[in-house]
Design a protein around this nucleic acid. Sequence first.
DNA 1: CGGAATCCATTATGATACTG
DNA 2: CAGTATCATAATGGATTCCG
Lengths: 109, 109
Amino acid sequence: MEKYKLGDKVFDCPVGLASNAINGKWKLQILNLLSQEECMRYGNLKRRIEDVSEKMLIQHLRELEQDGLIERKLYPEVPPRVEYALTEVGRQIIPVIVALKQWGQLFRI
Amino acid sequence: MEKYKLGDKVFDCPVGLASNAINGKWKLQILNLLSQEECMRYGNLKRRIEDVSEKMLIQHLRELEQDGLIERKLYPEVPPRVEYALTEVGRQIIPVIVALKQWGQLFRI
DNA sequence: CGGAATCCATTATGATACTG
DNA sequence: CAGTATCATAATGGATTCCG
């Protein structure tokens, strides 16, 4: 039986792997913003995703980075600048975001 | 500003709504199975999704039902038979599942 | 600016046993 | 067969404070 591997986690099904990768209260919104902007600074992400706490934002960014969907670029300036961007693998998930957004549009009021 | 509503929950962004609807460890796998089979019995879902506990499976099925993505059909027979199927709204999320599955295939080993 | 550290409350998930 | 009920643990979320 075929297997699917992300980091050190192994799944029996591609949907299970994908589900695990995007599972998290803010992950899809992070990916959505990054899919539109080439790259984005931490503070900008924080402002665009209202209600997210710094802790959760950082935590999700770290997980997405570990899973290879995004990359973190640190510019050692003063004040420090950190930019997040989709990786090649991350960009390949954009069709999912697009489809998801279209589905969500069905519920517009 | 436009709003998006699912049940009694209101979101500012379609991705936020969609993210909320599919958020759950097993929800995408449930939707994936139901997208392939017309309808499926509880016990069959249970067998196909290995490792899911009865509690979580039922809980996720209930939530998907409340959100209008799936419907539960009870046939008052002995022994009882319960079938789950995608609703019209649920079927419209299939492109998401397809895209997600394709993305997951990238990690095949 | 972009975090880290800590404490605490709430949810989510799971294992097991039991039932109409 | 298709669930419930109970108990327990793990994960998540939020507030606050501090740092280079």
